[in-house]
Design a binder for these strands. Structure first.
Length: 593
RNA sequence: GGGCGCGUAGCACAGCUGGAUAAUGCGUCGGCCUCCUAAGCCGAAGAUCGCGGGUUCGAAUCCUGCCGCGCCCGCCA
């Protein structure tokens, strides 16, 4: 629709100048019409009233008289102080059918004019399986990766592996010091591991982690354990290779199990970067050295060092510590080193973080600014709660993503079995897997990230309406039509465009409503990518599916064994957009369902 | 106590760089399968946009005060 906007601006510019409006603030006021029957774009004329000493509806009316319609804008009307522009149906159809809407492909990076973007997401501590709350990060992050690719950016996705903190140390200590029997004794009051996951290492090893957390609260042993763990953490922070190797042996199988879960959700990473790298390669000490020369640098009584970010406008607690009294670095310090390294790889950085990291992220960002770097873009999300409270791996109060995916698949299989009695078990399983995983992803993507929500099984497993299966279903309809046309010997390709009859007198309005949604498709994608808000594009895809269904109702592509070329072209373009958009959201497009 | 965010029909959620009758889904009520997949479509009822003030020709949207909820306020990660 940007092209229509440009055209309308060109029409309006001289007419407004004649009235005495010479600046171009009005360009920002042109908006997509809310009253669809009035037009596509509208200019509210209220703001001109004072300057021109005229009533808004008079202004709109006189502008309307001054404007001539043309082959793009077929109608200009004025109502209630609004000047409305209605695009020509023929122009709209030619624009869309003529291939002016970029389809895109989320599976590929487009090389030309590509902005290079590095998206870091998930980066969960490798100490246990994903629960639904932690997975929100991965799903949002991966969707951002896909949407940026669809948009044409050159994207690299990264998982920052926390391979040296206390959490890994706890896991490593437990694996080295506790037997399986001891672990299960300590956890005897908790639910056992779901037997399906007994051999999946993230589920198996998290028991050691949880047992260690119990012992760390046990007065009789806690001091000794704390000492042992502290020693390991300290060694890791000093780059002790023996300890770092032991940590890796402890966490790598867990991480592999976690990644298996993500891969079922079609989430993959281009790179894994380990936190310890920045300690062992000297980056962290170089940065601490540089920070100590800054004007806002300060030293505490015990020798710990900080920046006073209050001097740069930070409110609340303003001291940001980057070095302990013993000279070692902190997590945030390493994160700064990581960011500087990321800037050496890409132009733009995007981080996906939980809302608990807001302050930390602000501090890192301000410190980067002090060192002459840009701030990364950050997508923050709120947590997913359970009806009875917060999810916590440590306390074992969680819904595991693995369990959710199993349930979702089982539920989808029930639905398919009921309505497609002729499908084989293999077909059903394939469809159910696609539907289940897509629905889980979509249910998380569609809500605005800054909104916290409560996880409820019945909602997570709901496939009606506002959901991935709704979109998948529309797409499947379009594939079914295409294959029927093929059976009749008619395939859609660009050459068909020549044969299309642009006399639209008998064509139902619903086709043009679909065309309008298609024409705004790339605008919606661009907005979602620029603002890092995947839910906006989720809405667009829902609207596209919805209008496709309206078109499907009114416009029969095949009638009396004959193919209508215009309808087929529209159906196929919608189909391609649905498909690429679904890939952009991580929804699996199916041929049949 | 301080900082940041959220509060929109019974439920869930969109709209938030100000503009026309606040969009959508679930749920409720009523209709549509001799016709390309009914996981669909059509229609009806349902909203003091948390509350109060302000700015404006115009506020769900901007400012401000209050209320409720979440997160943060380690020389933890």
């Amino acid at each position: 629709m940007e092209i229509l906007r440009q055209h309308v601006e060109e029409m309006l510019s001289p007419a407004l100048a004649n009235l005495g409006i010479t600046n171009d603030h009005w360009k920002g006021m042109i908006s997509v019409s809310r009253e669809k029957q009035m037009g596509d774009l509208s200019l509210p004329c209220f703001a001109f009233a004072k300057q021109l000493s005229m009533a808004p509806n008079e202004i709109a009316e006189s502008l309307k008289k001054a404007l001539a319609t043309n082959e793009i804008v077929e109608e200009v009307n004025s109502t209630a102080g609004y000047l409305n522009f209605k695009s020509s149906r023929k122009w709209l159809a030619k624009y869309v059918i003529g291939g002016n809407v970029r389809i895109g492909n989320a599976e590929l990076n487009s090389a030309n004019e590509a902005e290079s973007v590095l998206i870091e997401h998930t980066s969960a501590n490798p100490n246990g399986p994903f629960h639904v709350g932690r997975a929100r990060n991965a799903i949002l992050g991966d969707t951002l990766v896909r949407l940026n690719r669809l948009h044409g950016n050159n994207v690299r996705s990264e998982y920052y592996v926390d391979d040296m903190g206390k959490q890994v140390a706890v896991l490593a200590w437990a694996l080295a010091n506790l037997s399986a029997e001891e672990v299960e004794n300590i956890l005897s009051d908790r639910e056992p591991v779901n037997e399906i996951w007994e051999t999946k290492p993230d589920h198996a090893r998290v028991r050691w982690y949880q047992a260690a957390q119990v012992l760390r609260n046990d007065e009789s042993v806690k001091d000794d354990i704390e000492k042992a763990i502290g020693k390991m953490v300290h060694a890791s922070e000093n780059g002790d290779h023996g300890v770092l190797d032991a940590f890796e042996n402890a966490y790598q199988p867990v991480l592999d199990g976690m990644l298996e879960t993500l891969s079922r959700l079609r989430i993959n990473f281009d790179e894994f970067t380990k936190e310890s790298m920045f300690v062992t390669n000297g980056d962290v000490s170089n940065i601490m050295q540089k920070l100590s020369t800054l004007a806002i640098h300060g030293v505490a009584d015990n020798g710990a060092e900080y920046l006073d970010l209050g001097a740069r406008g930070l409110k609340g607690k303003t001291e940001f510590f980057y070095r302990r009294g013993d000279g070692s670095s902190l997590y945030a310090t390493r994160d700064i080193a990581y960011h500087i390294w990321k800037y050496s790889q890409c132009d733009t950085l995007i981080n996906v973080l939980g809302e608990d990291h807001k302050l930390q992220s602000k501090q890192v960002s301000m410190t980067l600014n002090e060192l002459g770097y840009n701030s990364p873009e950050v997508l923050f999300y709120s947590f997913i709660k359970l009806p009875d409270g917060k999810m916590s791996t440590r306390r074992g109060n969680v819904v595991f993503m693995d369990d959710l995916l199993e349930e979702a698949k089982a539920h989808a299989a029930e639905v398919v079995k009921e309505i497609r009695t002729d499908y084989t078990d293999e077909q059903i399983s394939h469809i159910a897997e696609a539907v289940g995983t897509s629905a889980v992803r979509f249910n998380i993507i569609k809500v605005s990230p800054d909104k916290g929500f409560t996880f409820r099984w019945e909602e997570a497993l709901s496939f009606d309406s506002d959901s991935a299966p709704f979109i998948m279903y529309s797409h499947t309809r379009s594939r079914s039509i295409a294959s029927k046309c093929l059976a009749l010997g008619v395939a859609y390709d660009d050459s068909n465009i020549e044969n299309i009859n642009y006399d639209f007198s008998d064509i139902p309005q619903s086709m043009f409503e679909l065309l309008r949604v298609i024409a705004t498709h790339n605008d919606a994608l661009m907005k979602a990518v620029e603002q890092n808000r995947p839910n906006l594009f989720a809405n667009q895809l829902l609207a596209l599916a919805n209008h496709y269904n309206g078109f499907y109702r009114d416009c029969k592509v095949i009638s009396d064994g004959k193919v209508n070329q215009t309808y087929l072209a529209v159906s196929e373009i919608a189909s391609k957009l649905l498909r690429s958009g679904m890939i952009g959201l991580g929804i699996e497009p199916l041929e049949k369902m």
